[in-house]
Design a protein around this nucleic acid. Structure first.
Lengths: 223, 223
DNA sequence: CGATTCAAGACGTCCGATGTCTCAGCCACA
DNA sequence: TGTGGCTGAGACATCGGACGTCTTGAATCG
């Protein structure tokens, strides 16, 4: 195994074993390199790789630190990876989202606060009845994120956040070509919100499923 | 932005835009470095980072290539990230798995082949009635992977593979020395298999839910 | 014709120097 | 005495070049 890969594994080991804890500062590059038995250049490659996936946080002039290791942070790297997928796998991503999002929405029905509900309602109202496609999609993302956050599961939340990337493009595309997509989306959002207000998990789940399935169906018929 | 980060973005751009396609070979390091306007050292950091998350495949003595970019490959990096999570978030990962795995199992009920079913049955038989914990864990992983693969959604499959990474699972099982856990697991596996054979998606889903929920419950009571 | 050898090409690793940024401590000023 | 700027030490950023190791394929020899 290459020394750089070894270094990656060793640093990983130090973190997993607890020798390095979230927020801890690593020894300076030259010291750590000596400690691990490789050159500073090679060590830097390892550090850079771990920083790309948000394990390490490198601050020039200061030092290198272990990040908080929050699921949110680590899964953020997921969206970077997801960006590489081509359109022919969008359907598979959407299918996964169709599983997760309704479940998250149902979970939120039991936990979402009144303030959160009001905030969501406000957000929908602010959009008006004839928004631009870009506005609608941005609002859509925000709306769903707000709900999923209320599911109380940060892993679920981050995962959905990452998966939503590629489908965003598809939704924009759809909004541009399908006439009634905008009004239908608005209607579905209000239905989801109403179900959440009623604390009706099953209704919330169903509306969320319908919401995603309609995008999926359109996409399938288009490809 | 640092030159290395710039290089990462540029290489990403070349791939996303289609200038570099899966399997393509990159210019040699010195040339690419000159092309992107940085030193070979800095470029190598970028390449190393992209190779950690399986975007690039570096072969010493040969050259650097774009990987197939299969969802399977890219999400493989997920397990690397998941390894960093501490025990207090295991429950959240498990909750996500509890959503995905039953859905995948239900999907498999409609698509799984007879050969696949026989293979799964064989695998369970081979384990005997009193396996070691290590054998059981390995078999458990294999069993679920086999089913999820039959769901026909490679994104879903890779995601579950990453989430139920060896570390997570191992940690759960290590403490799981409950006597009846082994036999109960075996029983549940057989029930899932029977439901699949019957093409009974709902039964398969329910058994999968029960299967995961029992682990979840045990874990919750232990932490 | 096949096996072996060898050389070119490409990545792997290291070194040392210099640039740039951050932070903390010192000092002058009000 | 408090505040603000200045400055120097420390740490990361980047570079260029040298040398090692590995892969591959062509040339060579039996």
């Amino acid at each position: 195994m290459a020394v750089t890969d070894e270094a990656i594994e060793k640093i990983k080991g130090m973190i997993v074993s607890g020798a390095l804890r979230p927020g801890d500062r690593l020894p300076k590059e030259s010291e750590l390199a000596a400690e691990l038995g490789l050159s500073r250049n090679s060590l830097r490659e390892a550090v850079r790789a771990l920083s790309l996936i948000r394990i390490l946080d490198v601050r020039q002039g200061d030092g290198t630190y272990v990040t908080s290791l929050d699921p949110q942070l680590l899964l953020e790297a997921l969206s970077f990876v997801v960006d590489f997928h081509r359109d022919d796998t969008v359907l598979e991503f959407l299918a996964v989202r169709r599983i997760l999002e309704p479940a998250a929405t149902a979970m939120a029905a039991a936990r979402i606060s009144e303030q959160q509900l009001d905030a969501l309602a406000n957000q929908l109202d602010k959009l008006g009845t004839d928004p631009s496609v870009e506005e609608l999609v941005a609002c859509d993302l925000e709306f769903h994120r707000g709900i999923v956050q209320s599911s109380g599961n940060s892993v679920l939340c981050s995962l959905l956040d990452g998966l939503s990337g590629p489908t965003t493009r598809a939704r924009i595309w759809r909004g541009l070509t399908q006439e009634d997509a905008v009004s239908r989306t608005l209607h579905e959002h209000r239905a989801i919100l109403a179900a959440l207000r009623d604390r009706d998990a099953e209704a919330a789940r169903s509306w969320a499923t319908v919401h995603i399935a309609s995008v999926e169906q359109w996409l399938r018929s288009t490809l």
